[in-house]
Design a protein around this nucleic acid. Structure first.
Lengths: 127, 127
DNA sequence: CCGTGAATGATAATCGATTATCATGCCGTG
DNA sequence: CACGGCATGATAATCGATTATCATTCACGG
């Protein structure tokens, strides 16, 4: 029946409403714990992520060593916050000026990323 | 004889004069190609990096997925440039203001990293 | 000169992430 | 209903990075 979403769609949509980029494993655990769907295999998550990138719906984001996260493409310019306790990544809005001033002579910059580290609101409250 | 440096020292010193953080593999290739020392094993590089961090001489830097780079501790505040052609990381001096404004409500920031991407001077010249 | 311990290097082993494989279930069509 | 194709899941295989192992070398003190 068409009202049932494919697992692939569920991966894409989970990222569409996420508050930050997620890794394959994070997505897997998130989707498995969702009661509205039976279960999902890690292989399907990887397949959907790969396809999502090929289709231009998703963008890989590498914030640290060890894993690649993914976010919906077409988000407006933003940066990321990494919680040192729960390891989750959050989108943060906005940007800063004068980044060009950091660029060394002779270098050419095509893009940039700003990473904030610390405690997210949840972990800060959990104390 | 004491005028001969240990391999460990050579690893530490190579990082001390590097223009950016280096991975174990980058260091290995760099040191192997140096005519002033016979050769060095990758195991020694890893050992020296680990010891360097334990001793507080080195700091691990994670800029992207896949590998950890290391830099001398005690460098003044700086950020990094990643060349998309040669994949090398370069230190860039300076910082920017108003990073706090990016921080979401309820979050606590302990540090930050700014990453510039593009072509380094060498790769830009090489066309 | 011999024994001991640290440093080193080659390489096997491990580890986490990702991909490949293969069998199964399901759906629509003829 | 039988068939063909696609989505899925379990899991084996792979891959790169890192660590562990083990034998060798070398400097030094007895």
């Amino acid at each position: 029946m068409s009202e049932n979403k494919s697992k692939h769609q569920q991966v894409i949509e989970a990222l569409a409403v996420a508050d930050g980029p997620m890794s394959a494993n994070e997505l897997w655990e998130h989707l498995r714990s969702n009661p509205s769907l039976n279960s999902i295999g890690i292989a399907t998550v990887y397949r959907s992520l790969k396809k999502g990138v090929e289709d231009g719906e998703l963008v890989p984001v590498e914030l640290e060593s060890g894993s690649v996260r993914y976010e919906s493409s077409g988000l407006q310019h933003h940066h990321h916050f990494l919680c040192s306790t729960c390891s989750r990544a959050y989108d943060v809005e906005g940007c800063v000026k004068n980044l060009d001033k950091l660029l060394p002579q002779g270098f050419e910059m095509t893009r940039h990323e700003i990473l904030l580290y610390g405690l997210c609101a949840d972990c800060k409250m959990a104390g």
